[in-house]
Design a protein around this nucleic acid. Sequence first.
DNA 1: CCTGGCACTCACTGGTCCCGAGTGCCAAGT
DNA 2: ACTTGGCACTCGGGACCAGTGAGTGCCAGG
Lengths: 337, 337
Amino acid sequence: MLDDRKLAVLRAIVEDFVSTNEPVGSKSLVDRHHLDVSPATIRNDMAVLEEQGYITQPHTSAGRIPTDKGYRLFVDKLSAIKPFSAAERRAIETFLAGAYDLDDVVMRTVRLLAQLTRQVAVVQYPSLSKSAIRHVELVTLSRRKLLLVVITDTGRVEQRVVEMPGDVDEDSVTGLRSVLNSCLCGRALSEVPSVAADLPRRVGPAQHANAAAVFSVLLETLVGRSDEKIVVGGASNLTPADFSQGLNEVLEALEEQVVLMRLLGQCDERSLVTVRIGAENDVQGLRSTSVVTAGYGSADRPLAKLGVVGPTRMDYPTAIGAVRAVARYTGQILAES
Amino acid sequence: MLDDRKLAVLRAIVEDFVSTNEPVGSKSLVDRHHLDVSPATIRNDMAVLEEQGYITQPHTSAGRIPTDKGYRLFVDKLSAIKPFSAAERRAIETFLAGAYDLDDVVMRTVRLLAQLTRQVAVVQYPSLSKSAIRHVELVTLSRRKLLLVVITDTGRVEQRVVEMPGDVDEDSVTGLRSVLNSCLCGRALSEVPSVAADLPRRVGPAQHANAAAVFSVLLETLVGRSDEKIVVGGASNLTPADFSQGLNEVLEALEEQVVLMRLLGQCDERSLVTVRIGAENDVQGLRSTSVVTAGYGSADRPLAKLGVVGPTRMDYPTAIGAVRAVARYTGQILAES
DNA sequence: CCTGGCACTCACTGGTCCCGAGTGCCAAGT
DNA sequence: ACTTGGCACTCGGGACCAGTGAGTGCCAGG
C-alpha cells in the first residue's frame, strides 16, 4: 500500500515536525530532505498518507502533522534507535556508579533520564514483590511499640511501627528477631505469605499474641501497598506549547502514584522498550502524551520499570535509546550491590 | 501617613485582586465593599497608595494591583489568619493520624497542604541534625560489605553500604554493633562526631580497620548531605496565568533540592509563620512567587520546616492558617511516635 | 476633606483587508 | 502509469482601524 517513497515522506514529516513543531508542507520537505522529486509528487503522496490516517492537517491550507498512527508506524518501522557514543555511555556509568544507596540510585536515574531526553522521567523503585528479604530488624521503641524494619536484597528498606498487644521485654524481642530472620532471610517476598503462616508455631505460646501482631504488620507492609513507590523528575521540561488542553492535566496525572502505576503496569516486561503513543495510553490526562518505558534489572531478574513521558511530538529515537541505556546501567548498578 | 480608610482600601484591593485576578478599579471597589464614600475619594486614596508604592497599575486607564510592598503591609497589618473550623481540624488530624511510617506522614502532609491551600506544598523531612539516634544496625551483605542502618527517634531511616577493608565474620559484626549501639543510642546527632572520636578505643585492635571504615561512613551519612530531603507536591496547582515569564522557571526551581533548602533556610524558626513575598525571595526563579513557611515539631524541639509556594497573588490568610495548622498537627504526630 | 463632573487615556474587541504558505486538481511530459 | 509544472483556491494570521468602555486625574464647588 505504501511504497518506499511514501514511507520516506512520512519519516521526513515526523522528523521535521518533531524538530520544528510546525506543520510541514511539501515544499520545505523537498528542500530539507534530499528527496529527488517535485513538491507536487510529495503532495500526492501526502494525500495518500492522509487518507490512510498517518498524517493530518490542522486546517486546510496548512502543512501536515503526524497522527498517533503515523508516529506508531514511524517508531515501529522507520526509526533506528539512536545509540550513545562511548563517551556518553561512560558518563552515564560513572554518574550512576557514584550513588551510595538505593534512594540515591533512583534519584540519579531520574535526573539522568530527564536530562538525557529533556522529558519527564519516571522511575519505579525495585518492586518489592520481586525482591528477597535480606534482613529483618526489630527495634524497641517503648514497652508496647516496636519498629519493624525489613531490608531487601535490592537495598530497599521498609519500616513500620508495630503496636504490641502486650508488653515486650528485650529477650522476647531478641527471640522474635531471630525467628524472623532464620525463617525469612533469603526468601523471595512472594514466598513470605506462605512462610509466615508457618511462623506462629515457632515461637513460645507466651509470645504468641505479640508475634502475631508483628507478622500481620509484616504482611501488610510487604504485600499491601507494595509497589507504590515511584519517583518523577524533570517536570520543568514540559513545555506549554505542546499541550493544547493545558499541561495541568498532565501534571496532575504525574502526581498520582496510582496513575503512574497503571502507566508502568502496561509496559511489557519482556520486550526491551515499550512505546505507547497518545491515545494508546488509556490513562485519562495522558492521552496527549507518549510514554517510553523499559524494565530494568538483570536479564534473569526484572526488578521494576522506568521511562519517560513527553508530548507525542517526541524525539523517539533519542528517547528510546536513552531509556534503554539507562535501564541497562541502572540494572547493572543494582545487581552489583 | 496612611489613615484608616486608605488601609481599608488597600485591604480591599488585595482581596479583590486575589479573588478575581484582575486589576481593580475605584468603582468596583465601592460596590463590592461597603465603603461609604464616592469612587472619586477612593481614587484620591489610590493615588496616594500608588505614590507610596503599595499598588501599581499595569497600564494607564486600568485598575490597580498590589505590589510586593502592598502585600507585605496586608500580611503584616491588615489580615487576620483564617482559623479552621472544628470539623476541618478533625479531618486534618485523622488524615495525618492514619499514617503508618515517617515516609507516609511526610507524604500525607504534602498532600494535605497542597489540597488545603491549592498551592504547591513543600515539606522537609525531620532534620537529621536535630534528631537523636534510636538504633544502629549492621547487616552483613557479603564478606567485605556491610549495610549500615541508622534509625532516628523521628522515625527516619538512613542506610549506606560500607566497603570493609578486611574480611569480617559474624562475631566481629555483633561486637561492632553492640559498641555502636551502646555508645550512640539516645545521642543527638549533633553529638555524634565527638562521641565517634571516642569509639575506636572501644574495639579490639583486630577490628580496628573495619571499625574505622564503619565510623567514617557513619559520619559521612549523618553529617554530610544530612538535611537534603525535601518533598514537593501539588505542582498541578500552578496556573500559567499567574506567571507571566512562564512557570517552567518555577517548576525548575522546585525540582532543585538545593534551591528548596535555601528557601526553607530563610524561614525563621522561632516565629510561627514566615511569609516571603515576591522579590523578597532571593532565590532566582521564585522572584514572582510568595512562600509561606513554618517550622514544625514540638515547641521545645523544632524538627524541620514546611510551607507552600504560590503566586504573590495568594490567599494569604488561608495559606498562613493552613501552614500553621498543618505544622502543628504534623509536629504532634511525630512527637507521639 | 469629600464629591460630582469632565476630559482624557488606552487596552480590548471586532471588522476588514491582504499576504502567503500550502493545497488539490489537471493536463502535459516521460 | 507515474511524475511534473501550472494554476486557482483556501484560510490562518498579521496589520490596520475605529468604536467602546472601564478607569483615571484634575478641578471647582460643597
